[in-house]
Design a protein around this nucleic acid. Sequence first.
RNA 1: GGCCUCGUGGCGGAGUGGUGACGUAACGGACUGCAAAUCCGUGAACCCGGGUUCGAUUCCCGGCGAGGCCUCCA
Length: 438
Amino acid sequence: MSLTLYNTLTRRKEAFDPIDPAHVRMYVCGPTVYDFAHIGNARPVIVFDLLYRMLRHEYGAEHVTYVRNITDVDDKISARAAEEGISIRKLTERTTAQFHADIAALGVLPPSHEPRATEHIAGMIDIISTLIERGHAYAAEGHVLFHVPSMKGYGKLSGRSLDEMVAGARVEVAPYKKDAMDFVLWKPSPADLPGWESPWGRGRPGWHIECSAMSAAHLGERFDIHGGGIDLIFPHHENEIAQSRCAFGTDVMATVWMHNGFLQVEGQKMSKSLGNFITIHELLADWPGEVLRLNMLRTHYRQPIDWTLKGLEESAKMLGGWFAGGPDVAAEFAPDVLAALRDDLNTPQAIAEMHQLADARSSLAAMGFKGDLTDPRASKVDRAQVETMIGQRIAARDARNWAESDRIRDALVAMGIQLKDSKDPRTGELVTTWEVKR
RNA sequence: GGCCUCGUGGCGGAGUGGUGACGUAACGGACUGCAAAUCCGUGAACCCGGGUUCGAUUCCCGGCGAGGCCUCCA
């Protein structure tokens, strides 16, 4: 049985055929660390984590290398650090730590390598130098620019021609550019911005070059899968391809290009101005991380996803039902679940298959669900008081004092606590549990 | 304006050229002092108009609607 993946480059589903089955290599664009990651940032992290788990299953854990970078040099980072009056390093370290804590709660495995852009400046400078030597780039006014017309086939990934792009361009063209489409590889840094010495003076890298350098350093000049959000197709991934292929003289950078769809919140585009900007951190105050993970995987990764409260409630209920019998002990993909995932990571189908399993718990661990469904809001509840009140209610019930029993239950509801009665199947004794009401 | 996705029951969401998964919600029943939880069961959908076909939700064309990209946003 083979794994099929949709390839943005060919706009088709294709059988996955690694360059070296003994070493499957995947690169995913990671976060720019200047602020809390939002729930949209979590989508590629979760989706490609599941793909990573699948690949480890198919090819063996030791035969898969997964690289997800951290972008720690960027103008947004510089601006934010200045705003807060802290050093760039302090900001990036704090944000990176927060990112790691957030995604760990989502059941995401650490990648094989997590390179930082600032550790790869020398590699970037090498690539830029090569591009200049080969006539694909030029220095102008302290900048180095990639000359887009020098590359045949530019635009293949995003499916657009140069003519179209020039016609549709709505930005002013910097005067030092030879062609309107040329993009920055290196730009000069004034004293107050981070900078590195280079053949073109003190400066900092452009946006796209870091991924070309980091993927080559850890995965080689050609590798199997490159992933990220759909918004990165153009210009980011298009330009990565241009840089890497022209510098390394290769026909292909990555064989398969995968892009996850966008996320909306309650039917609207997520934006700070609309006030519906949600961070992973905020969501984790209200929901177990695994609920967020399931909610993300209920929609196929290429479809747009509408992130809603209702959806979270459904996901929480589903997960609670699956784990009612305890944690997953199988730690393997059930065959039907695996078959669904092999079809371009069809997670909605996989989840439907999981509902059909005799023991619904099998496959959960393999999919990244451990069964830690602790409600984060419960930590704010005075447990001793709740337990005392439950004891008083049971006493009232034993005395058939329904008025008092209901009074206590209502009082708990007013506190946001929902009681659930059940009977011990063996002794017939009443067992009362509680949860925080949604 | 150019290019590209998508439109399935109340909601989420697979799939298919020939009696339309699954989840959740709703409704009915069991259980319960009454609820909640749990268990059992039921009904409910393929945007519109053409075309191809014996037959289309599925293929083609057009329309309408939603979303994305068009230089630094996953």
